[in-house]
């Protein structure tokens, strides 16, 4: 790991810093209500850092539903939208890497102007998990790099802040009065303790393993896992027309889910992944195996939200671990 610029910030200065950033920007941070979600925050006291958010921050960059074009009989026009500037606080390692992975998909590969517009105007301020914030998370097994503008390590009465980008550097420069010199952190200090372990990410050889059945039998194909996943990016595109003029309307994209039977249904009615098992495995293989074949990193960032949010708590991490154990036994 390269030596990072490191600073110390008192908690009072942290508050001042965020308040300063909120001038001209929306602050998005985890807030605890019935569940923890990333929401617009008006009062910094509302920020909740004790546990991990149940929902990821994904929808702030890749909304559940988004207008791509307004159309009339004359053609398709991209809506002229003014995206707000935003500062995110409280993103954890899994959230940050998920944003990085979605950047690969939407910016690098697809050159998607909608995603890019939302991303470009965002500052990513991370929050380091000293110990695993959820019993389901396993990020340390995935060997993810650090990715952030600023990363906050909470100490008793202050924060240690690492700088991870030019944007972050510019912030420190501008608000230097609230940042004080501090010595760099050791890899041990950066570690996240007590996270669950996924013992194998290279799962190609397990595709036909009978061990998947356990999960398939517990699967409702409800799509909770993909909706709660910070990286899942599958979507559909549909046209919606107005009643006053059915020739005009909006072309929209909505989140979709590979777990649904209709996901592979072509005109004429044929469904390519009709059985639950192939759909169940599709998500996990896309996350761990297939995305890596193209992009060198797994798509999954180990947040465990798909397990936490599953109505039957399908623990596919343990399932893969058992497949790996079996292998050693025989």
């Amino acid at each position: 790991m390269p030596l990072m610029e490191t600073y110390r910030q008192t908690k009072a200065d942290w508050k001042r810093f965020l308040e300063a950033l909120m001038k001209g920007r929306e602050l998005i941070a985890p807030v605890k209500r019935d569940l923890v979600r990333f929401e617009r925050v008006k009062d910094i006291e509302d920020i909740h850092l004790k546990s991990m958010s149940y929902f990821p921050a994904k929808h702030w960059f890749f909304p559940e539903e988004q207008t791509l074009f307004r159309f009339s009989k004359k053609g398709f026009e991209m809506p002229k939208q003014k995206e707000p500037r935003r500062v995110f606080f409280g993103l954890r390692k899994c959230d940050l890497n998920a944003i990085k992975h979605q950047d690969m998909v939407f910016i690098k590969q697809a050159k998607d102007p909608y995603y890019k517009a939302l991303r470009k105007k965002s500052l990513l301020l991370g929050y380091h998990c000293r110990t695993a914030p959820s019993p389901f998370c396993f990020c340390e097994s995935l060997g993810l790099p650090d990715f952030f503008d600023l990363l906050y390590y909470e100490r008793k009465d202050h924060f240690v802040v690492e700088v991870g980008s030019a944007k972050g550097k510019a912030l420190v420069k501008k608000y230097g009065r609230w940042f004080h010199a501090e010595k760099g952190l050791t890899p041990e200090q950066r570690r996240i303790k007590n996270a669950d372990t996924l013992e194998e990410t290279d799962i190609g050889r397990f595709y036909d393993h009978p061990g998947w059945k356990e999960g398939v039998n517990l699967c409702l194909s409800c799509g909770a896992c993909t909706a709660l996943c910070p990286t899942c990016y599958c979507h559909s595109i549909h046209d919606e027309v107005t009643v006053a003029d059915p020739g005009s309307g909006e072309r929209k994209r909505q989140w979709s889910s590979c777990q649904l039977q209709g996901f592979t249904k072509v005109a004429g009615g044929h469904v390519f992944r009709k059985d639950r098992e192939s759909r169940f495995k599709h998500r996990i293989y896309h996350q761990l195996e297939w995305f890596r074949e193209k992009n060198k990193v797994p798509l999954c960032t180990g947040c465990g939200r798909c397990i936490q949010g599953c109505p039957t708590r399908i623990d596919w991490v343990s399932m893969i671990n058992r497949m790996k154990d079996d292998e050693h036994r025989t």
């Binding site: 799509g223 909505q254 649904l260 209709g262």
Partner: peptide, 15 residues
């Protein structure tokens, strides 16, 4: 023909 959960999760509801 998608289950209700699909829209429910998009709405950010608790299960």
């Amino acid at each position: 023909d998608n289950p209700v959960c699909v829209e429910c999760r998009k709405n950010g509801n608790a299960c």
